[in-house]
Amino acid sequence: MNYTPPILITSSVKVSTPVTKLRNQEERINLTIKALGKWVQSDNNFKIIVCDGSGVDFSKQIYLKYPDANIEFLTFKNNSLLVRKYGSGYGEGEIINYALLHSQLLQKEPSFVKCTSKLYVENFREILNCYNGELICQCTFSNVRILRSFFNTYAKEKIKLLSIDTRFYIINKKIYLNFFSQAYIKVRHSKTYYLEHSFLDAAIKSNLRHFISDFAFKITGVSGTLHKEYRKIGLLRFLKIKMNFSLIKSVKKFEKLFIA
């Protein structure tokens, strides 16, 4: 795909949710700038929007570090009381909607890339090449081991589509606004119904097809929620994941959901 959508980096330097383990603001900023550097080094022509929903302006640090990059910085204060009550996914939904409304770089673009701050995706180009102009994401499934071990009618019935990985995805802006922009309102952390679940429900309701990747996204960086570094996916693990997806893709109820 020749077209490269702008990359929206969602950030929240000040933490509102009590379950988030990485709480040091300076560390959160430094990790965001470090991951941002990987995007810039990958292609200095990327259009990048950093939107922080906690009211912290660290744009000077970004522009000083990457003076030649095409980066737009936005900051605002989201509803911290509701974020604390319902979970970080609620805040993320507010951040994306704010960026879509206020970003100059996003205004005339048909699609955008969403990436959580502190993260980088090593096989971004591979993912972009598979983007169909609507949505591409990776999903989680249950009972994959049963399917891999037996691959019979029982195993096919047991496998379930659980959620969409909202750390990174590429999506058409109109589709996002029509089907996903209000998904965050349904997030209820106390009931273990996260943005990942609400996003999946929205995708199913939209009748989207061919949006699930059949290979792993090579996400690196640090999880703010867990304060844990994502390890690089090695070749053997990458191939194992691809084999699992190939099996799931062959199950009739899922075949139309995977990328063609």
Rank of each mutant, 00 (worst) to 15 (best):
residue 159 I to D: 00
residue 213 S to G: 11
residue 240 K to M: 11
residue 63 Y to H: 09
residue 185 I to R: 10
residue 201 D to L: 13
residue 24 N to I: 10
residue 69 A to T: 05
residue 130 C to D: 11
residue 122 E to V: 05
residue 211 F to D: 00
residue 228 K to I: 05
residue 66 Y to H: 06
residue 131 Y to D: 07
residue 38 K to I: 01
residue 256 K to P: 03
residue 185 I to F: 14
residue 44 N to L: 13
residue 72 E to V: 01
residue 5 P to C: 12
residue 16 S to M: 03
residue 219 I to E: 06
residue 167 R to L: 08
residue 49 I to L: 02
residue 148 R to F: 05
residue 178 N to E: 14
residue 27 E to S: 15
residue 172 N to L: 04
residue 110 P to M: 07
residue 165 D to M: 09
residue 35 A to C: 12
residue 216 A to M: 03
residue 41 Q to V: 06
residue 189 H to R: 09
residue 215 F to Y: 11
residue 87 G to R: 04
residue 248 I to K: 00
residue 11 S to T: 09
residue 135 L to M: 14
residue 32 T to C: 11
residue 138 Q to F: 13
residue 152 N to M: 10
residue 176 Y to E: 04
residue 258 F to I: 08
residue 255 E to P: 05
residue 29 I to L: 01
residue 82 L to H: 06
residue 149 S to K: 14
residue 236 L to D: 11
residue 97 N to I: 02
residue 173 K to M: 02
residue 112 F to P: 00
residue 174 K to Y: 08
residue 174 K to E: 15
residue 224 G to L: 03
residue 250 S to K: 15
residue 92 E to V: 06
residue 240 K to N: 14
residue 152 N to S: 10
residue 62 I to W: 01
residue 86 Y to C: 04
residue 185 I to P: 05
residue 248 I to P: 00
residue 217 F to H: 10
residue 42 S to G: 03
residue 6 P to Y: 04
residue 25 Q to Y: 03
residue 152 N to C: 07
residue 148 R to N: 09
residue 111 S to C: 10
residue 32 T to N: 06
residue 249 K to N: 11
residue 172 N to M: 11
residue 163 S to C: 12
residue 51 C to M: 08
residue 143 N to A: 10
residue 191 K to L: 12
residue 91 G to M: 04
residue 111 S to E: 05
residue 23 R to S: 12
residue 192 T to N: 15
residue 46 F to T: 00
residue 252 K to F: 09
residue 120 Y to R: 01
residue 226 L to F: 10
residue 178 N to H: 04
residue 260 A to C: 06
residue 76 F to D: 05
residue 66 Y to C: 06
residue 250 S to C: 13
residue 258 F to G: 01
residue 246 S to H: 07
residue 158 K to Y: 05
residue 14 K to N: 08
residue 185 I to M: 15
residue 245 F to M: 07
residue 211 F to P: 03
residue 107 Q to T: 12
residue 156 K to M: 13
residue 219 I to N: 06
residue 94 E to W: 01
residue 90 Y to R: 08
residue 218 K to H: 15
residue 71 I to E: 02
residue 196 E to L: 12
residue 199 F to K: 01
residue 245 F to H: 11
residue 248 I to H: 00
residue 165 D to R: 00
residue 260 A to K: 12
residue 154 Y to W: 15
residue 163 S to N: 14
residue 62 I to C: 01
residue 101 L to S: 06
residue 64 L to E: 15
residue 192 T to E: 14
residue 222 V to G: 02
residue 182 Q to H: 13
residue 190 S to P: 05
residue 152 N to P: 08
residue 254 F to M: 02
residue 60 K to Y: 12
residue 56 V to N: 06
residue 114 K to A: 03
residue 39 W to M: 02
residue 6 P to W: 03
residue 227 H to E: 15
residue 155 A to S: 15
residue 144 V to D: 04
residue 223 S to T: 05
residue 87 G to D: 00
residue 119 L to H: 08
residue 260 A to N: 14
residue 24 N to Y: 07
residue 102 H to L: 02
residue 229 E to A: 08
